Computed example of a mutant assay.
Amino acid sequence: MSAHAVFELRQYTLRPGQRERLVELFEREFIEPQEALGMGLPGQFRDLDDPDRFVWLRSFPDMPARAAALAAFYDGPVWRGHREAANATMLDSDDVLLLRPTQPFALEGMTRPGLGERAPAGLLSATVCPVPPSDAAPLARSFDMQVRPVLGRLGAPVLGQFVTEPARNTFPRLPVREGESVFVWFAAFADARAQARHRAAAAADPIVDAWVHRLEALPETLRLAPTPRSLLRGASSLMTTPGEHA
């Protein structure tokens, strides 16, 4: 998965009270079949600020491979056998950002828990930053060189950094958010209190503040609890020295 160049950040709005049903179905039926078709599934998450939102990541080697893998999965027997149950939990599944990594996840050493297996959980955040398209690359570089080390010192090891993938959607049956330019970074925390302390410290840091003021709008931060079989579950315990490149 480390060589994958295309990622989807998928946010599903679910029918009230249906998230646990979808998590159980997803983790029992949908992980290994997608991986067998060459897709990567770095993480599945519960949104801590919305009990009816399910967030997950999916990756591909490139855009042509994405089209082929998605066609194979959504026209295949696994999805046909479970799509009615999955779709019954959802109100909306079109909130999808198509991304490419500027600093990919370092997944070496991470293993996916099996069904029913207990593993350290931790907490992640995904910070979605609207950026001017012409300034996306410079903002990504300045984040990596100036902001990322600060965030590490403040207790937020950065797991990965991404910008919008500008290519045309090669699988239009699954819509994506088009006409947007974003920079997204993921961080890991031991728990919600550590994440709250970090947010307060980052908001008061002049380097972080100066970078945020270059954005088109204020960033949106998703507080994410990894589901039991998320590959990124417990990522905070595997990070190296804060601020150090993995």
Score class of each variant (00 low, 15 high):
G160C: 04
L139R: 03
A140T: 02
G234Q: 12
R214N: 14
L222T: 03
A121N: 10
P172Q: 05
A194S: 04
D135N: 09
A210Y: 11
L123K: 07
E108I: 12
C129S: 07
G17A: 05
P120F: 00
A200T: 13
E108H: 13
D191N: 07
W185V: 10
R53Q: 14
M239C: 14
F60L: 08
F143C: 00
G17C: 04
R83I: 01
R199W: 06
A196Q: 14
M90P: 00
A121S: 13
W79S: 13
T164H: 10
V158W: 01
F105D: 15
R28F: 01
G122A: 08
V150E: 00
G179D: 13
S142H: 04
P206R: 03
L151S: 15
G234W: 09
G40E: 15
R229A: 14
D52A: 05
G40V: 15
A203S: 12
D47S: 03
T240Q: 09
Y74Q: 08
P166E: 13
A85E: 14
A204I: 00
Q146D: 11
A126D: 05
G43K: 14
E165A: 08
M1S: 08
L97Y: 13
M145K: 12
G38A: 13
L115E: 12
P16A: 03
P101T: 11
D52C: 02
E216M: 15
R46L: 06
M90W: 02
T102S: 03
W79T: 10
V176S: 06
F162T: 05
A196S: 15
E24C: 10
E32Q: 15
A156M: 11
S2G: 09
P77T: 10
R229E: 09
W211M: 12
A88P: 02
G114I: 15
G122C: 09
A200L: 14
A3H: 09
A3E: 12
E29N: 13
A188M: 08
Q11F: 00
A167V: 15
R229V: 12
F186N: 09
E180S: 13
F45T: 11
R141P: 01
A188V: 06
L22Q: 10
G155D: 07
V6M: 14
